[in-house]
Amino acid sequence: MNKVVKSVREAIEGIKDNMTVMFGGFGLCGIPENVIRELAKTKIKGLVCISNNCGVDDFGLGFLLNNHQIRKMVSSYVGENAEFERQMLSGELEVELIPQGTLAERIRAGGAGIPAFFVPAGYGTEVGNGKESREFNGKMHLLEQALTADFAVVKAWKGDTAGNLIYKYTANNFNNMMAMAGKVTIAEVEELVPAGELDPNFIHTPGVFVQRIFKGVDYEKRIEQLTLTK
């Protein structure tokens, strides 16, 4: 099976209106820039996007937001985006906020075939509204359900033609679990090498989770908060 697709256009084939799509990344770190740019050129709309954040006004998922291509955002933190706030307050955009660790685990569970699990995060807060709760070891927990998606889009540093992926530094974040949780997972990578060239001892995401892979181009890797030692 050939997982390598020739272009980003080919990579996003099959993404349609109203689908659920996961996007890897934390802030602007480790986001699939090529796929986001390409989706912004299409007329695809009504997307339910699962992503820890929603980019900034003029970068990342902010592109899709500005085009009104996103119907609902599932995130843990959405603070850096004025257009986001406007659409949320006007009711154009539906938003579901989930504690970050619960979001990560719901995605992992989705990929791992675990339909639901209990966590303590959010018990006693509005996150617990309508959820089953139960005591374990003297502590209250909430029942949380797995998340999956029609497509998961991830970004890695290195990948091979078998779909194996390696991330750099903190650009791993949500990418590794999302790769597991997509019915179809698209990986864009900075370096694409033939199978056998990456040391199998150091693979983060095994190729079984990846259906399509391509070498991305023109990575801007914008920095959200450039902070330097004084």
Binding site: Y77, V78, G79, P99, Q100, G101, V119, P120, A121
Partner: peptide
């Protein structure tokens, strides 16, 4: 202010 809880709920719960 409705920006989201990030990891704070997970941290304080555990």
């Amino acid at each position: 202010l409705i920006k989201g809880m990030g990891g704070a709920m997970d941290l304080v719960a555990s």
